[in-house]
């Protein structure tokens, strides 16, 4: 699972450069939480296009992830990218004052979609393409909000597992405190991804790698020494989240239908 970091950097910076141009933009925008993924993505973008062509939006909700905001500011300063802070608390509080809930997942999803909505608004204001920061681990188990943090123009890191993103971050020399801290989706104070998923990223990624990249059956992965319960749970998570990885199905009733047999490339004439 180790990666050839220089090759990955070369490939992904080229991808960001070329796809940004093809989409008709010369700059990019991303939500910078101060976590590992958005930090690594910001480093790649700054390297691909130059820091002036990168706009980082820091969008905190109250004091939910103070450390994240500190780290995001640090990254924006180190990279000398443009950055802007937008507090999403007023709109989130207004909504949940009218429609209260105790469910932190509902709140987290709402926040993710508020950030998405701001990113798309700024994409249009600033004529900047949105970089997605979801990694392969999240995409496979569906650990992301549909039409929230999963929404983007291009996703440079979607084929790198979380532990590989960390390896890439080490290669790119991102701040040590971001490399070592526990990943969090910032759903509630003290929340960690690993606590919520119930597995460490090391273990999760190794199981996913065998299932997905090595095309092993769940039983083979269990035989390789992983706990049956964990493997089963991961397979279930993959199965249940396919809807987050696809365009919604269209009922086919004509002889030629979008998505079924009307098939054109994304990068058509670009």
């Amino acid at each position: 699972m180790k990666i050839n970091a220089p090759l990955v950097v070369k490939t992904l910076t080229g991808f960001i450069r070329e796809e940004t141009r093809k989409a008709g933009f010369d700059r990019v925008i991303l939500g910078l939480s101060g976590g590992l993924d958005s930090t690594v993505c910001a480093y790649l973008a700054a390297r691909a296009l130059g820091p002036k062509k990168v706009l980082a939006l820091i969008m905190p909700y109250r004091d939910l992830d103070k450390e994240g905001v500190t780290h995001a500011r640090l990254v924006a300063g180190l990279l000398k990218v443009r950055s802007r802070e937008i507090d999403i608390s007023p709109q989130i509080d207004t909504y949940f004052a009218a429609l209260p809930t105790d469910n932190p997942v509902l709140k987290g999803n709402k926040m993710a979609r508020e950030r998405m909505s701001i990113l798309y608004d700024f994409s249009a204001r600033e004529k900047a393409l949105i970089l997605g920061t979801s990694n392969k681990t999240e995409l496979l188990i569906g650990y992301g909000t549909i039409h929230g943090d999963l929404a983007c123009g291009i996703n440079p890191m979607g084929d790198l597992y979380k532990t590989q993103v960390r390896e890439l971050g080490r290669h790119l020399k991102i701040p040590e405190e971001i490399l070592v801290k526990k990943p969090t989706a910032g759903l509630w104070p003290g929340q960690t991804d690993e606590g919520e998923i119930g597995l460490t990223y090391e273990e999760l990624d190794r199981i996913l790698y065998l299932l997905v990249d090595r095309r092993q059956k769940p039983d083979e992965v269990i035989k390789a020494g992983f706990e049956r319960k964990k493997v089963r749970r991961i397979v279930e998570m993959i199965k249940k989240s396919e809807f987050k990885r696809r365009m919604p199905p269209i009922a086919k009733i004509s002889t030629r239908t979008v998505g079924h047999d009307f098939l054109y490339p994304y990068d058509w004439d670009k």
């Binding site: 699972m1 180790k2 990666i3 050839n4 090759l7 990955v8």
Partner: peptide
Amino acid sequence: PGRGIDEPQSQGF
């Protein structure tokens, strides 16, 4: 298309 990034020493895929 290039695929496979597991080999740290290689210059290519």
